[in-house]
């Protein structure tokens, strides 16, 4: 059988048999402890500067950011953004409690459907689990309330992110996920899919010239809700 053939070829190369139990236990210990390595200093900043770094990095990667004082401003900001982009006032939104709780009724002209995305959807509103300042990256762990297709199918993706959910480095985001997420199938923390998204989709395959909107969204707009007093600029 291939599995045994491959494993024994590796062990032959390593000049040993299967790993002795004590060594295997040590490696399991390493996995359980998942020690951090060198983390770049660039994101180790006071909160306000960390958030500013996040915003700067999103913009550097061709995303846009609007900073909003509180969640109630979100529907208005969306209506305004869509009008500015000449897009119809319709969107498909993640069925997330934070999004459901927004005062949609204040903007009756906005058509909002809370579901996964389908072909033909022009605009999505997605819920970010965390933002990572290091590179302006958004973390989207898949869940019933955070369908993956919202990150992929529409040409325009709008993202709701609370400022309190911005961390410095990738490792901090993984620790948030470890602490907060339980997967029904494995009992671990990893959901089926975690997307780390940094800016809108792009390709440089044609003559090494960057074009936005290859297969995924052409626009990525982050609505940053200021729920963290220490993070305000």
């Amino acid at each position: 059988m291939s599995r045994e053939a491959i494993l024994s070829a590796i062990r032959r190369g390593l000049r040993r048999g299967p790993l002795p139990p004590d060594q295997a236990a040590m490696l399991r210990g390493r996995i359980a402890a998942h020690p951090r390595h060198l983390i770049p200093a660039r994101s180790r900043l006071p909160r306000a500067e960390q958030v500013a770094l996040f915003v700067r990095n999103v913009e550097k990667e061709f995303g846009t950011v609007a900073r909003l004082p509180d969640p109630s401003a979100v529907p208005g900001a969306i209506a305004e953004y869509l009008a500015r982009q000449n897009l119809p006032p319709a969107l498909v939104a993640a069925p997330h409690p934070d999004i459901a709780a927004l005062p949609w009724a204040d903007h009756p002209l906005l058509q909002v459907e809370h579901r996964a995305a389908r072909e033909g959807d022009a605009v999505s509103l997605q819920h970010a689990f965390a933002g990572i300042a290091e590179t302006g990256t958004l973390m989207f762990p898949s869940a019933r309330e955070r369908p993956t297709t919202l990150n992929l199918l529409p040409e325009t993706e709008i993202v709701l992110l609370r400022a309190s959910r911005i961390v410095g480095a990738y490792e901090e985001a993984w620790d948030l996920l470890r602490a907060e997420n339980r997967d029904g199938r494995t009992g671990g923390f990893m959901p089926r899919n975690v997307m780390l998204v940094t800016g809108p989709s792009r390709s440089a395959d044609i003559e090494q010239t960057l074009e936005l909107g290859a297969h995924g969204p052409r626009r990525l707009h982050v609505l940053l809700v200021e729920d963290d007093p220490s993070a305000r600029a």
Partner: peptide, 8 residues
């Protein structure tokens, strides 16, 4: 600095 999509 980072690719657009890093997916697990």
């Amino acid at each position: 600095d980072f690719s657009v999509y890093t997916t697990f």
